[in-house]
Structure formats: C-alpha cells, structure tokens
Nucleic acid binder design. Structure first.
Length: 1100
RNA sequence: GGGCGAUUAGCUCAGUUGGUUAGAGCGCCUCCCUUACACGGAGGAUGUCGGGGGUUCGAGUCCCUCAUCGCCUACCA
C-alpha cells in the first residue's frame, strides 16, 4: 500500500489530506491518564467578532510548536481551544449590521431578539475561526472546545461572582467611568484610543456672588467642554497661589539650566510666561484665594445656582486662568476634588445617550448642540471672555469610534486592593492560603512569595519568557496600582450580573428577612444592605443599625444566589418584594480570567454540562478529573499587551478559586508590524489574512516563517504587498509593495504605481468602483522554498529506499560520511531542543535548517549518491539505505513541530518503504508522526572525530571549488588533483579521498607530502597543505591571487602578533584566550609559508 | 512629563557572561536546467555595528551623552 509521492510539492492538495487524517484518528484528543508529565496550554481565546489575523497566526503557531514538541516527548498534552464572546465588540458588530441591513436599532427588536442574533453570528464566526486554526495545523483537542458563554464556563462565572460577592470583594459604587454614548455602556481604559482633534478653549466669566466694592466682578475659568458647566459644583483656586507659582518658576528655572541647546528656547519662553503671570495674574489669584477662604460663592450662569469657591491644590496657578471649574460627574480630576470636598456634591448632567439631563432650557439637547447653545447664551450675557483654538487629545471608544464622556454612574467593581484582615484564597481547597488582597496575591505569585503549600513544598511561581525581568516589571507595575476593576457593562450580550437589587423601606426589610429566612442562612445565598451613605452591611448588622435613631428610611438590598436555578424560583419572591435582577452584564475579561479553570469544569468537573459529544470532565475509573489532572497548567502564550489585561487576571482568579496559579510559564511573543513598522489593522488595509498566505504558500510555509520571525523580544516587520487586481489573464501575478505605494482616496486604499489606479484592501469601496485586492507578504516564499527542498530531499531518499531494512550495527562499523551525518544530526537535535527550551523558535528552526539543508542536503545526500548507483556493491547500498532511512526518520521528527503537514505526509511514505528503522538500535515506530517520539539519546551518535575529519574534507573541497570557479572551470569538467599534505591532514584526506573527489568533481586525486605543482596547475593553500589543480593555467591570475592572500595573511599576523606582544594582554587576559590566539597565529604563519612557497613555485 | 525598548549588509533579523578575520535568510553579480529539487546547485560582492565620549590588554557587547524611531503610562481645567 505504497502511497505515491507526487512529482511536485503542492501544499494545497497535501495539507487538507493530512488534516482529515488527523481528524479521523482524533490525533489530538487528550484524556487524563496515569502519566506523571503533563503539558497544558490554554489558548488565548480569540474573539468571535471576526476572523483571525497574523497576530493570531503567530500566537497559534507558537502554541502548536510547543504542544507538538511536548506531545512527542510523551507528555500528556492538552491544548484547550475555544472562543470568547467579547461582549461589547460582538454586540457592536451585530448592531452595526442590524442597522445597515435592516435599518433597525437594538431597541427596535429588543433584548431577547438581539441576543438571539448575536448567537447566530457567534456560531458562524466560531466555525470560521476553527477552520482557520485547523488550516494552520493547530493540534487542539477540538472535542473540548469551549465558549465563554457556554454552560460550563457560565457556571464558573456564576460561582466566582457569587464567591467574590459574598466575600465582599465585589461591590457597586458610584464612580466615574468612560461612557460610550453611542453604545450606551461603560468601556474599559483598554477599549479606548486617543485622537487629536481641533478643539476650542473657552474662557468663561463666572460672576462673583454678592460682590462687594473692590472685589472682582468675575472669576474666569477655562474649559474645552462648556456644556459641562451645567454640572459645576464649585470653582477651585489654589490655597496659596503665590507659593505654588513660585515653585513652578523655580522648577522651570532649573529646567532651563539643564536644558539642551535645542530645547532651551522653548524652556525659556515658558519661564518668561510664568514670570509674566506672576506679575500680572498673581495679585488677582491671591485676592480670589482670600475670597475662597472667606467661604464666598459664585453665581453659576444660566442655572441660577450658586456654587462655592473652594481652595484645592488641584488648581494650578501656572495653568489656564489659575481658577478651575469643578464638575465632579464629568471629569476624573474634578471627581478627585469632590472626594476631598464632599460637601460640594456632584451633578450628573448627561443622559446615557449623550443628551443633557439637567432640568432647564437645555434638557434633551445632544451634548454638542448644547455646547453651541450654551456658548450663545453666555455670549448674550457677555460672559465669554475669549475663545482660543486648541488641539486636544480626546479619548474615543474603540468600538463605536465616538468620543467617550467621563460619566458618574453606578457600576460594579472588583476590589483589587488589600483588605483589612486579608482574604482567603482557594477557600475550601487543600491549597487554601491567606493573602492581603487579590492584586497582592498575583504580585506574590510572580515574585515567588506565596506561602508554601501544606506539605511544605513551594507554591508554583509564574515566570515570563524570554525576558523575565522586563516582562515581570510590566506585570508588577500594573498590578501594584491595585486599581478597582470595573466589571459591569451596560450591554445585552454577556453574562448577566446575578444580583437582585432594589430600594426598600426599612420595615419591608424586616419582612424580607422573614421571607428569606430559610435562604439567607444557607451558604448559597449572599446578601448585602447598602445604606444611602454608601456603607455596606450584612443583613443582621443592618437590622440592628436601622433600629437606631436617625437611621435612613430606605436602603438598597443586594442579593446573589450561587446557582442560577434560584433566580427562577426564589427570584420570583424577590421580584414580588420589589427587587430586580441587575440589567447589566459582566466585562468579558471576567469570564476570560477564569478560562484556565472554567474550561476544565471548575467548580465541579463531574457535573459540568459539556456539549453533546464532548468528553466528560469528571474523573473516570482510576483517572483524575480534567481539573485535578490538568490544573495548574503549563504555559500561556500571548502578546505583550495582554500581560495586564488578561495574564494578571487569570493569575488572580486562579489563586482565588483554586489556591494555585493557572500556569507556571508565560511566553510573550513578538508583535507583527507591517513594512513601515506600523501595527497591522483591518481598517488600514495592511493586515494579512493567514488563509491568504496558506492559499499562496501553504500552511507549513506560514508556520516556518512565523517561527523564524520569533527571535526574542524584538517586534517584527513583515513587509506587506497587495496582489495586483490589475493583472491581465495569463500574465504573472504582480505584487505591489504597500510600504512604498501611495495611499488612495480612502483609508485602506492605495494607488498601483504601475497602472496608477486605486485599489481597495479593506473590501469596503466596491460601490465607489475600487478594485478589491488581497494583502500577502513575499516573506513566506522562504518557507515554501524550505518545504519544497524537504519534499525533494525526501523524494530522492524514497527513490533509493526500496527494500531498505534494519540490522543492528555498531557505530564504529560505519563509513566516515555516515558517522558524520549521525553526529551532525545529534548536534542539531540538541540545538533544536535547547532553543525550544529557551523559547527561541527562530534559533530552533535555524539549527534545524542548517542541519537539513546545509549538511544533509548539501553534503550527505551528495556523498551517498555513489553508493546508490547501479554498479555499487549491494552491501554498500543496503547500509546507505539503512542510514538514510534512520536519518530521515529523525529529521522528520525534529522538523514536525515546525512543518507538521509535510513531515506527516513524508512519514507515511517512509514507513511504507522502510517500516523498521535504526542504526545501533531500533527506533520506536508510530503510525502517525504526530504521535512519534521526539528523538532521544542521540548523544551517543556524536563523534568529534567524524565531525572534524569531514570538516577537513569540506574545507579542502570549498577551496578547490573556489579555485575552479575563479578559473572558470565548467562545473561538470573533471579535473586531476594533486594534494601536497602530510601528517594528520594527509591521513584524513586519504580516508576521505573518494568523498573529496566526488564533491570537487575530480577525475583523479593524489595525496602525499611530496606532491608538486606542475607548470599548468593552479595552487590552493589550505591550512598546512596545498592542492594543485592540473590543467588550470593562468600564471598572472595565480600570482595575483596568491599575492592578495599573502597580504591578507601578513596583516592578520601583524595584528595578532601585536596583540600577543602587548604586555597588558599577556598579563591580564585569561590563559586559554592567550593559548587560543597563539594557536591561531601559528596556523596563520604556516599558511603564509605555504602561500610564499606557492609564489616561488610560480617562477619555476 | 515619566517608564521601557530599539538603531548591525540594499531588506528582515541573529550575535549568550566583553576575547580569532561580525553572521543568516532574502535581494544582488557570475557560472550551471549535473538522472531529488531552477521553490534548485557552485562561487562571489556587500558592514566606520546610529553619532560622540569613556572604562578595559581588548567593546557590536559595559558606562555616559546626543540623535532618530517605537511601545507603555500620566497630563493638558
């Protein structure tokens, strides 16, 4: 059943066949068993928003590389696949389509219908993503694929929320958030981007309330957002403007002194401005500060309100007008001021949709319309001092591309900072321990500072690769801030926040208590009572507190059940009592943070409701549950930007739920940039779809190059080209380099430099008549070349392997070239293994390539060719077959993690032709290469003698080839060689004579100490000997060449002799360095002698 | 403003703790369609290691400084 290998390498036909073979054999399925060694990778779950890009390709290939390597090493290997519901992103995409296609908003169709549509989108999207990953060769256990909103993950989310809520780590607070007025939800800092816009800086006059003679009429404040004045609750002035301004001036003076010439002018100008301010503005500011201290007020225009003039250090006399309006509900700094002056209060003047909510003439106006109207009204009252143009950087929502507003609203938070008395991590597990707080636990995990386990063993530490110091610093810096994590989103797509809450009269609370009496005592219900002042009490404490005099009449009740089934039963009772289930959903990262344990069935693998056809997560027979067996995992592979967003949060929840970190290692791979060094993005049209690369070059080529790109911490520039859409039929495809192509009329379009026509890389401008084009990168040709070479090398082997067999042979019985290739193979194996161990795929693949191409193909395959000729003795042929089969076997294994499709294909052919393989021992076989054992114990194949002997042959061969080329001897012309050599060199050359003759295309070769140059021969000095190429005459050229060599040797000898003659060097350099240099010098001197002899010979 | 990182051949990148004459792939030049491979073979050219200073017997590698370019982070009332 020999599988014929096609004549040409065609990844497009070969790869799908391998994919289906792997699928048929369920080759990647993982089950807990008795094996001690495990390797677990949790895939950074891609969004179901859209298709994968090159960043994902890098991420997936790196993971697959590690996974395949560990699987071959015999580890019980799990690669957990899945996708993320990506709340805001996915909802935004589906809403946008709804608007475009049907002209409807989410409110037109309602919550249920929208969520249904998003599920449909998710199904399609997930299918496409998995197809892409399978196309890349990802060897995930597809039967265990999870989704952050499926039943298994949802239960973990619910339980975690419940636990944190019960422990008081989740709370609802009135805070400023970034508000997306278009999507009407809070968005996280990482969902923002900054954009510089042309704005205006408005100077507004606020009249002084109850002004007395001699006092200023107005206090002037400046703002870029005049409409927020409706929400002003104070105007602030620095308590000691003179001192503050003086300090600023001194600081600026200092800066001027230290400034470089180029910056000095700017710094001096600034100093000048401050000094002028001190002269002109300061007296005024001092006066206002005095008024503030008297408790004077300001009349807030247009509203009829009076607001206090306060002193606060936030007001900087060096900036703006020196006085600042305070709008706590719409500005983060003002919010901070409010925290210091609680009595001023905060007024929210915006509705969630960005319209004005403040009672009065502006009610209902959009915030930008209100801005214009307010300015007009202020101008009518002569309250606008001046308006300046100004460029401002404004936060925009990445999802809706609209300006976000700081907005005071009630949101849910996870308390990250330390807690009085600390918290229990991994409560109820054998790994339970105490920590000061959630963020601190994650910091300790990376510092190796977690308390030891109960059995005395150290707890696992999280380490970063390939630069522990640098990446840990990023992790530490972010976590050290211990900022509360806003987890609520005002969306419909996501995990609903499982809290029943509502206002309640205190007498009703007593009733509620009796209604829930049975429930509240149980440990699957948690409840908090929040008093109007924001303080949070247990139900029991609240009942006591509310009995006191002056207790508030109403309170907020918050109740959370551990299991969602209770929402339908007890929830109804709560509803009757006026409570409602919170309408918000959780931040996507909340469920992502649980991924390493939610996917394994936490909190109870046995009862986890996996999808139909999926393996149970519970314990089976003697084997542990998926959770017990595979948690904690091994390595998380991701990009730098994810360290804070995700890695830290996974560590936190892992420690909190299970008392252990989710993984021991974090491998941060590079970011892929385009040819200009810019981040790839869909909208810029410089992004590459991995499937386009696979179609053009093959998945193995994609993988090969991606591995080659991952060198260390360096980000990667990947030049991007568009496939020209203007190529006529029959012409070869043209590539247009995007780094040099001029941009077209729209973002993501470019101009073809040949036809001068615009084309479209984002596929959005078909209506405008732009031709669509695909983006690729010719860098991937390198990978295709490699695969083609591998294919052909194997094909050559297969042509000669018919009838190959295995006989146990001692290594010493093998000829030089066989011993050498085995030795090189062993070295390559060690190098690849070492590079992979240190997370250096580029070094690994370079070592593999150097062996395969530079040694196996360039030398060994050529060296064995004579042994496969018809006239060669049968025994020689059989031995060559055996060695070649064994070498190919090991080579395919080593290359498999990098280029799995091709190696798997070739493996089948190899197994057909040479079912049993080995040299001094039989190699363990395997039906599929994906399950074959990674090479082991190859160290016994290393032979320093074979290495150096063959290296000697190679050196002579190279020198002879160089001479042939420089004398323009045709490659096929066989020449006669005389080699003058003695001692060890002669011995080696005599042994390798046949090899040398073959590789140097010599018809005859004579080696001895007494060989001499003939008049018609060229001489080549190699080490301490000389080769004469007979029949190659050109005395002038020869003289010239030897003369150049002589000059070079002399200069080298001079510099080295000088170095060795340097007393400092002799005294201070380590002895082995001195010895090495002396040996080199000795060698150079010998060469020089030979060259000089050659020059003398020419004259005879 | 603060922090981190980068700058090596035309291009994309290696270069371990300082130690021979700084490497690879692609591209380029010459020759070759030799019965595995032209997605190939043989040979070749190409570098003031961003600039300047310093430490050292010795610097691409360590220190200082300047320039340019990234990334993160804060602020701009």
């Amino acid at each position: 059943m020999t599988t014929e290998l096609p004549a040409k390498y065609e990844p497009a036909t070969l790869e799908p066949a391998v994919t289906s073979r792997w699928r048929e054999h369920k080759a990647f399925a993982a089950f807990p068993d008795a094996r001690e060694h495990r390797y677990v990778v949790m895939m950074p779950l891609p969004n179901v928003t859209g298709a994968l890009h090159m960043g994902h390709a890098m991420d997936n290939v790196m993971q697959d590389l590690l996974i395949r390597w560990h699987r071959m090493r015999g580890d019980n290997t799990l690669w957990q696949a899945g996708t993320d519901h990506a709340g805001i992103a996915t909802q935004a995409v589906v809403e946008k389509r709804l608007k475009e296609i049907e002209g409807k908003t989410r409110h037109d169709i309602g919550r249920e219908a929208l969520v249904e549509r998003i599920w449909e989108w998710k199904e399609q999207s997930q299918k496409r993503i998995i197809a892409q990953q399978q196309g890349m060769g990802c060897s995930c256990d597809w039967d265990r694929t999870r989704f952050t909103m499926d039943a298994v993950c949802a239960r973990a989310v619910r339980h975690t929320f419940f636990k944190m809520f019960r422990d008081g780590l989740i709370f609802r607070g009135n805070r400023l958030v970034n508000w997306d007025c278009a999507l009407q939800t809070a968005v996280a800092d990482d969902e923002l981007y900054k954009e510089t816009v042309q704005g205006k800086f408005h100077y507004l006059r606020y009249p002084l309330h109850e002004r007395k003679p001699g006092e200023p009429e107005h206090v002037i404040v400046a703002t870029t957002r005049p409409e927020t004045m409706l929400g002003d609750t104070a105007v602030a002035i620095h308590p000691d403007p003179a001192m503050a301004l003086r300090a600023a001036i001194e600081a600026q003076r200092h800066k001027v002194q230290g400034a470089a010439d180029k910056e000095r002018a700017v710094a001096e100008q600034e100093l000048e401005r401050l000094l002028q301010r001190e002269q002109e503005l300061l007296p005024h500011l001092i006066q206002i500060a005095a008024l503030a201290k008297q408790g004077r007020k300001i009349t807030l225009p247009l509203t009829g309100r009076t607001i206090p003039l306060i002193t606060d250090e936030w007001a900087d006399p060096a900036l703006g007008t020196g006085c600042v309006k305070i709008t706590p509900a719409h500005d983060p700094n003002d919010y901070q001021v409010w925290q210091r002056h609680r009595s001023i209060g905060a007024i929210n003047v915006l509705n969630g949709n960005g319209t004005i909510s403040a009672e009065g003439p502006y009610l209902g106006l959009d915030r930008f319309d209100a801005r214009k109207q307010i300015l007009r009204d202020l101008q009518a009252q002569n309250l606008v001092e001046k308006i300046e143009d100004r460029t401002i950087e404004i936060d925009h929502s990445d999802r809706s591309k609209t300006i976000v507003e700081p907005w005071l609203s009630k949101q849910w938070f996870v308390h990250m900072a330390d807690v009085d008395g600390g918290i229990t991590m991994g409560a109820g597990t054998p790994k339970q321990f105490r920590s000061k707080g959630l963020a601190q636990a994650a910091l300790d995990a990376a510092a190796g500072a977690l308390p030891a386990l109960a059995d005395g063993n150290a707890r696992m530490q999280v380490r970063f690769h390939p630069d522990q110091d640098r990446y840990r610093k990023m992790y530490d810096q972010w976590l050290a801030e211990k900022r509360d994590w806003c987890i609520s989103r005002q969306l419909w797509w996501g995990h609903r926040i499982p809290v029943w809450r509502g206002e309640m009269q205190k007498q009703h609370l007593l009733m509620l208590e009796s209604v829930l009496q049975g429930q509240l005592r149980r440990d699957d219900v948690a409840a908090w009572i929040v008093l109007p002042d924001g303080s949070r009490l247990s139900v029991a404490d609240a009942l006591l507190a509310l009995k006191r005099e002056g207790a508030p009449a109403t309170v907020e009740v918050q109740i959370c059940f551990r299991d969602d089934t209770a929402d339908a039963t007890t929830g109804v009772v709560l509803q009757g009592a006026g409570l409602e289930l919170d309408p918000d959903v959780l931040d996507t990262w909340f469920s992502s943070a649980l991924w390493p344990h939610s996917t394994l069935g936490w909190p109870d693998p046995l009862s986890a409701r996996v999808d139909p056809g999926q393996p149970s997560l519970g314990a089976r027979g003697d084997n542990q549950s998926a959770l017990d067996y595979w948690y904690p995992g091994s390595c998380l592979v991701t990009g730098r930007d994810i360290i804070t967003l995700w890695v830290a949060r996974m560590v936190i929840t892992g420690l909190y739920n299970l008392g252990d970190v989710p993984f021991s290692d974090v491998f941060l791979h590079a970011t892929i940039l385009d040819g200009k060094g810019e981040r790839m993005s869909k909208s810029k049209g410089n992004g590459i779809d991995p499937l386009d690369i696979i179609k053009r070059y093959g998945a193995d080529a994609l993988r090969y190059v991606v591995c080659e790109l991952q060198t260390g911490t360096q980000d990667i520039r990947l030049p991007v080209q568009a496939i020209s859409p203007f190529t006529k039929d029959g012409e070869p495809e043209q590539l247009i380099d995007l780094a040099t192509a001029k941009p077209g009329p729209y973002l993501g379009t470019y101009i073809d430099p040949v036809t001068k026509q615009p084309f479209d890389l984002v596929g959005q401008y078909g209506k405008q008549g732009l031709a669509p084009a695909k983006a690729v990168s010719d860098r991937f040709a390198v990978g295709a070349n490699f695969c083609n070479k591998l294919f052909n090398a194997a094909r050559f082997a297969f042509l000669n392997l018919d009838g190959a067999s295995f006989t146990e042979r001692p290594l010493a019985s093998l000829p030089l070239e066989d011993r050498w290739i085995l030795s090189r193979l062993a070295a390559a194996h060690a190098n690849v293994h070492g590079a992979l161990s240190s997370y250096n795929p580029a070094a690994a693949i370079a070592a593999a390539r150097e062996f395969f191409w530079g040694e196996l193909c360039d030398w060994y395959l050529e060296l064995v060719k004579p042994r496969f000729r018809d006239e060669a003795p049968a025994a020689e042929r059989a031995l060559a077959q055996q060695v070649l089969a064994a070498v190919l076997d090991q080579t395919l294994r080593i290359l498999h993690p990098f280029v799995p499709f091709l190696t798997e294909t070739l493996w089948q052919n190899l197994c057909d032709l040479a079912p049993v393989r080995g040299i001094d021992r039989e190699l363990e076989g395997s039906a599929l290469l994906v399950h074959a054992r990674w090479p082991e114990h190859t160290a016994t194949w290393i032979s320093e003698e074979a290495d150096s002997d063959l290296k000697c042959v190679q050196q002579w061969c190279a020198a002879i080839r160089e001479a042939r080329a420089s004398y323009q001897v045709a490659p096929r012309t066989r020449i006669a060689l005389r080699i003058q050599a003695s001692g060890q060199t002669a011995k080696i050359l005599l042994r390798g004579q046949a090899l040398l003759a073959h590789m140097a295309t010599a018809e005859s070769i004579a080696i001895s100490p007494t060989q001499e140059r003939t008049r018609d021969s060229a001489a080549v000095v190699v080490g301490d000997g000389t080769a004469f190429l007979l029949g190659v005459v050109d005395l002038d050229k020869e003289r010239d060449k030897l003369g150049k060599q002589q000059d070079k040797l002399r200069s080298q000898i001079a510099s080295m002799a000088a170095k060795l003659g340097n007393e400092g060097f002799r005294a201070k350099a380590p002895p082995q360095v001195i010895a090495q240099q002396e040996a080199t010098l000795q060698g150079l001197r010998q060469q020089l002698l030979a060259v000089e002899q050659g020059l003398r010979d020419l004259d005879h």
